[in-house]
Design a protein around this nucleic acid. Structure first.
Length: 547
DNA sequence: ATGGGTCCAA
DNA sequence: ACGAATGGACCCAT
């Protein structure tokens, strides 16, 4: 009898039977190269993509390992064509290599003349290349190093970049030696990045990405430019660097709208760099203000498009990308691969959980039925109004109340996207509310009340996605969210995953209106977490309310 | 110089 | 395809 957990199909999809005893093992085996596409209750669908295979390749996996993973877990004989295809795709990475020749010139060399000939014929690639040195070698203008990698990836011949980096201006940085050490996975992440030279480290929220950055800076011991999404995060980086490294306050500069300090370590917001005036970028000078030895990109999944363009010109500098999820809602994963670098380290959330660094989580989707009148209104409404209508159905309020009562003595966050809906929750439950309009002072006060246990229930809007100083909770109840955003889901779950002193399980609820677009979007959002091995339980609101 | 408020882009 | 939050510019008051 065939009994693997996977069904491997020739269209490059993999079907994983979730309740199979070896499902977890199979999921782990395919995670390095397959992306989860759909995750309903029983069968999850993964897709094998070229980018996934190349990331696996860059991480040191070879085709043999990928094939082995499939063959081991497959229920039926694996289609031969697929195996051939996988081997061929993986083999495409590294046929072309960027490196420095003996005279120090940047060249593209190949182990396969036909490939070089093929790419030379591409209209977009030809102009990026200089004279042909010999049959297997062609000159590359240093300024086209990034663009060339982007274009080569697009035509399916991603180049391995071994051209190395400038050291940049040296600056002594060491990790503080006062009774703490990097966690093993952080150490591995730093080594993975350093050996690769540039690329992306993927770690869950709260797993200490900043420390991976700090340790990489210590390894480089060079002037460093750190790019972050917002000013709160900039301040956090600064505090953390002062606490955990030999760096002092006056060695770290802030380059934002308010300040324009350029110091050996400079922390800048993406926005200030992307600011455009009459068609030019006035703050681009920052990138050349110093001979940076390392550029750190925080939250790579949010990297704005203009930064990609600027990064194309920074290919000679070491680049470290940090993120909780490589998924981008705009599909520019390929540009992250070409311009920042391949994935160098990736710790599945479940692995970090089993080591006790993040709390175990119980994820539940609660399905509520809309009232008859709401259903009629929904059925006759314009498609553009439907999402909001379903998301904000008043029936959700009863569920929130019941869940809050069920976890009466635990710190609980209610998270939603529509301010009116949040007002209703506050009215019903009589608790505090934090939105974008809440002044910073008041926010900090409310955060402090919650953190120190004076209040146990807090309703928050989308600020929850951004604000780094949101206190930890053990229960999060999500009542509405951005159109199926996977990374939002990841952020929000991250909010409750700080390990609890007593090893307690965190609870993550998503309240969804049955038979509506709300439910569809929820399914889409949950894809990322399912990929990380979190199983959603689905329960009926009616069952919850009876008890 | 610093802190607040309003407006705007994406 | 939407509503909400953001950082930054600009302006004004100390």
């Amino acid at each position: 009898m065939p009994d693997g957990a996977l069904i491997v199909q020739s269209d490059k999809t993999l079907l994983l039977e979730v309740d199979h005893p070896a499902a977890a093992q199979a999921r782990r085996a395919i995670a390095p190269f397959a992306e989860l596409e759909r995750s309903p209750e029983h069968i999850h669908t993964y897709r094998v993509t070229p980018l996934g295979l190349w990331n696996a390749r860059a991480a040191g996996h070879d085709a043999e390992q990928v094939v082995h993973a499939l063959v081991t877990h497959s229920r039926y004989p694996v289609p031969q064509g697929l195996l051939v295809d996988i081997a061929e795709t993986m083999d495409r990475y590294g046929r072309l290599t960027l490196r420095k020749d003996d005279e120090g010139q940047l060249v593209l060399v190949t182990t396969d003349r036909a490939v070089l000939t093929e790419v030379l014929r591409h209209k977009k690639i030809k102009p990026l290349l200089g004279d042909r040195v010999d049959e297997d070698t062609v000159l590359v203008h240093p300024s086209e190093r990034g663009t060339l990698k982007q274009e080569l990836l697009k035509v399916g011949w991603p180049a391995e970049d071994e051209a190395g980096f400038v050291d940049g201006e040296a600056h002594p940085i060491s990790l503080a030696q006062d009774g703490w050490t990097l966690r093993p996975y952080q150490e591995q992440a730093v080594d993975g990045f350093w050996d690769g030279g540039s690329g992306v480290v993927v770690l869950p929220c709260g797993a200490g990405k900043t420390l991976v950055g700090a340790a990489s800076m210590a390894k480089a011991s060079a002037t460093t430019l750190i790019l972050v999404t917002n000013t709160v995060s900039a301040r956090q980086w600064k505090d953390e660097l002062i606490a955990r490294t030999s760096l002092t306050e006056d060695e770290i500069g802030e380059y934002s709208g308010a300040r324009k300090e350029i110091r050996p370590v400079t922390i800048a917001t993406y926005q200030v760099l992307t600011l455009k005036r009459k068609g030019v970028y006035p703050h681009l000078e920052l990138l050349d203000a110093r001979d940076w030895g390392l550029v750190v990109y925080d939250e790579v999944h949010l990297l704005p498009a203009p930064i990609f363009r600027m990064t194309a010109d920074l290919q000679a500098r070491r680049r470290l990308g940090l993120t909780a999820t490589l998924v981008r809602e705009d599909g520019r994963e390929g540009d992250v691969f070409s311009l920042i670098g391949p994935k160098r380290f990736d710790a599945p959330w479940k692995d970090i959980e089993s080591q006790g660094y993040i709390a175990p989580a119980d994820c539940v989707e609660v399905r509520v039925s809309m009232s008859e009148s709401m259903r009629m209104a929904y059925a006759t409404s314009e498609p553009e109004d439907r999402y909001r209508m379903a998301s904000t159905t008043p029936a959700k309020l009863d569920v929130v109340e019941a869940l809050v009562a069920k976890h009466a003595d635990e710190p609980t966050l209610v998270i939603g996207q529509y301010l009116d809906q949040l007002d209703e929750v506050v009215e019903r439950l009589g608790c505090d509310l934090i939105t974008g309009q809440t002044p910073v002072k008041e926010r900090q006060q409310l955060f402090a009340d919650f953190r120190e246990g004076r209040t146990r229930l807090l309703v928050v809007s989308k600020v929850a996605n951004f604000s780094v100083d949101l206190p930890e909770a053990t229960v999060a109840i999500q009542i509405s969210g951005t159109f199926g955003s996977r990374q939002e889901e990841a952020q929000r779950l991250g909010r409750v995953l700080r390990p609890k002193e007593d090893g307690r399980t965190a609870h993550f609820y998503t309240v969804v209106a049955r038979d509506t677009v709300d439910a569809e979007m929820a399914a889409h959002r949950q894809r990322f977490l399912a990929e990380q091995g979190y199983a959603y339980r689905i329960i009926d609101a009616e069952d919850l309310l009876e008890r």
